[in-house]
């Protein structure tokens, strides 16, 4: 871990103004389908998301932070995101994060991404670039990405189910070791990408049900969350 712990806290804070509050990380669809109905099923959902989408996001973020080509990473993220709705969401959140990052930790490479890719890069790639601008390490941002993967559905479940917030927070605490393990695995993958120059070393774990329900959710006429 880097010595810049406060910058990491700032970036990982759910109140960081980058648009995440409007997204449930698939929890809204899972609640509607009855797959999340309390703390135990929330924990199972979060664990599944962490080891699939979370691992990929953490590795993308760590690789971007390490200095790998963000545009190649963005293409790799597309290849690992089969659902158009989730690609759109990832780029939208990437644009919103980039806006906050450029104001918070101004850096030429952030401004360059905004200018060359006005439609945005996948959020984990921008997260990695942001961490780089903030002086954080690849392992730091892998942890932030892993945490982000599970904190979004947990927060959303509190709003969607009126779940006891203490229970939801306890679910996150219970996943701490798993998040640390995913962050370590993602950091190792990012080091391999940096050493070889090939994004093939990025993990490609997928959660088909999250992909399918995200596409369905995007067509709901009435919903609380954007994704």
């Amino acid at each position: 871990m880097s010595t810049r712990r406060t910058a990491l806290l700032l970036l990982a804070d759910g109140r960081f103004p980058a648009g995440a509050h409007a997204h449930s990380g698939g929890a809204e669809a899972a609640v509607r389908a009855g797959r999340i109905d309390g703390p135990a099923t929330l924990a199972a959902f979060c664990r599944g998301r962490l080891h699939t989408t979370g691992l990929v996001a953490a590795a993308l973020a760590a690789a971007a932070c390490a200095g790998c080509d963000p545009y190649a990473l963005d293409a790799a993220a597309d290849a690992r995101t089969p659902t158009p709705a989730l690609r759109d969401t990832a780029r939208k959140l990437g644009r919103q994060l980039l806006r906050a990052a450029r104001a918070t930790w101004p850096a030429p490479e952030l401004h360059a991404v905004a200018a060359t890719r006005p439609r945005g890069l996948h959020q984990p790639v921008v997260l990695g670039l942001t961490a780089r601008a903030a002086g954080l390490t690849p392992h730091d941002v892998a942890q932030a990405a892993a945490y982000d993967t599970v904190s979004s559905p947990a927060t959303a479940a509190v709003r969607l189910l009126s779940l006891d917030p203490f229970d939801a927070t306890a679910v996150l605490a219970g996943l701490a070791d798993a998040m640390d393990a995913v962050a370590a695995q993602a950091t190792a993958a990012a080091e391999a990408v940096l050493a070889t120059g090939s994004t093939d070393h990025l993990p490609a774990a997928s959660a088909p049900l999250l992909d399918i329900t995200a596409q369905q959710h995007a067509a709901w006429p009435v919903r609380l969350f954007a994704s």
């Binding site: 080509d69 963000p70 030429p108 401004h111 360059a112 991404v113 905004a114 200018a115 060359t116």
Partner: peptide, 11 residues
Amino acid sequence: HLDHPETFPHR
């Protein structure tokens, strides 16, 4: 594309 030397117009 890191540390690009050009100054880009900001969208």
